[in-house]
Design a binder for these strands. Structure first.
Length: 433
RNA sequence: GGAGAGGUGGCCGAGUGGUUUAAGGCGCACGCUUGGAAAGCGUGUAUAGUAGCAAUACUAUCGAGGGUUCGAAUCCCUCUCUCUCCGCCA
């Protein structure tokens, strides 16, 4: 949510910034409504003041047993005007809010202007792509060959874009989760949180998924929504709070399933586990003071990279261009992992983490502030989030990068202690039902 | 799911229609006092918005939203959360 005062004082700058998001000339519409609203408010407040004064007088006169009918008539007249004004105020307010709540965040100056993911800017590349003496398979071929990844049963139970993992695949998911959380807690110093997976609309408005992106979410019949990411509950922890400066920064990590309807992705990534309605993710959220958020975004990105480095999975980091940067984000680094089994064995980089600095965009929607210890001033906190990592896609990356000619998969060193000491998985396809 | 009791400032807590401009206390900040501290005394201590260059004034907010009234923390309705008991349940 944007600061209306900022728009008033920087309307031209604001329009230029919104243009990067393909929104043209919006400030005039906003400011016209704003002017209208303020004039209604001023009029209303003058009348309210008069009403309050006369009502008080009536109280005094009644105590003195004097006649008050003339004054009562007078107040009734104010009341009629007030009712009309209140209707106008509400209507104008709704119109203004509807516009503001649907406007995306301002982009950071470092965000490249672009029109597709081709315009994302490469920041760095890490690791060496594995070379195979055979044509590398994708995770579906391997997972189904060993009967550990069952899309048929997934579809039977729930429909398309659901999967059932068996045996070592289920273990791998659990192992990865534990490994990622352990590093987050022990090395990064993040506080582990286990949040609700169902949230109310207010929470989703706070982080920016609502009202604009309702189609991407699953809604229950009791007006609760399944979380599309742990970012939603974790960030909303500070909604409507005034935090002591001492409490900041708050650095959280959480493992949750994520639920997405993938409404806009019909026909896209239909093969395999890359794009599912339900997937597991370890998510980091930071609540920081404004002058710390740039640094914190770099730190979060490094945290996610560190996991990939420990797993020895090759990746690259890109900064998203204007078109690709999410609604709530001012600047986003995506980490893309190398998946050698994709494109019929040619391989491709696919997003495995997304780290965003939302600055004060979410905190304004949530009304999340902190009090400066020295000046006692209130300011909006900055909020950041990043995956560390998407567990499903990490499984894919391990299978495809660590596969051997017989289809078995080497377990990365750091995971072995989480996998009953196994060094290789997918050796026997007859173990499973 | 059923029955009941509740939600008042940073915290405790008074307040059942008009001297409430939310009493009183605690905490916190500053000042006086002191060799220093404590105690004592005094002053101050919410958020948002509107008008104004500003000092300041005004408006709204007593869980949320409606309603009644000249006037609502107080009366009515809806919702929500907390607590107690019962039922069900991992």
């Amino acid at each position: 949510m944007h600061n209306i005062k900022f728009i008033r004082e920087n309307s031209e700058l604001f329009d230029n910034e919104m243009k990067k998001r393909k929104i043209e000339g919006i400030s005039k519409i906003i400011l016209d409504l704003d002017n209208k609203l303020r004039s209604f408010k001023t009029k209303s407040q003058v009348l309210q003041n008069k009403r309050n004064l006369v009502s008080k007088k009536i109280g005094q006169l009644i105590r003195e047993s004097k006649n008050v009918s003339t004054l009562q008539e007078e107040v009734k007249n104010y009341k009629n005007s007030l009712i009309n004004l209140e209707v106008s105020i509400k209507k104008t307010n709704l119109e203004l809010d509807k516009i503001l709540i649907n406007l995306p965040n301002l982009l950071d100056n470092e965000v490249p202007i672009g029109f597709s993911e081709k315009d994302n800017k490469l920041i760095k590349t890490w690791g060496k792509k594995p070379s195979f003496e055979f044509s590398p398979k994708d995770h579906v071929t391997i997972g189904e060959k060993f009967n550990q990844m069952d899309f048929k049963v997934g579809a039977k139970l729930s429909g398309t874009r659901f999967v059932l993992l068996k045996n070592e695949m289920a273990l791998l998911e659990r192992a990865l989760t534990s490994f990622m959380i352990d590093i987050n807690v022990l090395e990064f110093g993040h506080l582990e949180v286990s949040p609700p997976y169902l949230v109310n609309s207010e929470a989703l408005i706070g982080t920016g998924q609502l009202p604009k992106f309702a189609d991407d979410l699953f809604k229950t019949e009791s007006d609760k929504w399944l979380i599309p990411t742990a970012e939603v509950p974790l960030t909303n922890i500070v909604r409507n709070e005034i935090l002591d400066e001492d409490k900041l920064p708050i650095k959280l990590v959480s493992h949750t399933p994520c639920f997405r309807s993938e409404a806009g992705a019909a026909g896209k990534d239909t093969r395999g586990m890359i794009r599912q309605h339900q997937f597991s993710k370890v998510e980091m959220v930071s609540i920081v003071k404004p002058d710390e958020s740039n640094q914190e975004l770099l730190r979060l990105t490094k945290c996610a990279e560190k996991i990939l480095q420990k797993l020895k999975l090759p990746y690259r980091v890109v900064i998203l261009c204007s078109e690709d940067t999410g609604f709530s984000s001012s600047k986003t680094f995506d980490i893309e992992v190398w998946l050698p089994g994709q494109q019929n064995g040619k391989g491709e980089f696919r997003e495995i983490s997304s780290c965003s600095n939302c600055k004060d965009f979410q905190s304004r929607r949530m009304n999340a502030r902190f009090r400066d210890k020295e000046t006692k001033q209130l300011s909006f906190v900055h909020t950041l989030n990043g995956s560390c990592l998407a567990v499903g896609r990490t499984m894919i990356a391990i299978i495809e990068n660590y596969q051997q000619s017989d289809g078995s998969v080497i377990v990365p060193d750091v995971l072995q202690k989480y996998m009953y000491g196994k060094k290789v998985i997918f050796l026997d396809q007859n173990e499973n039902f």
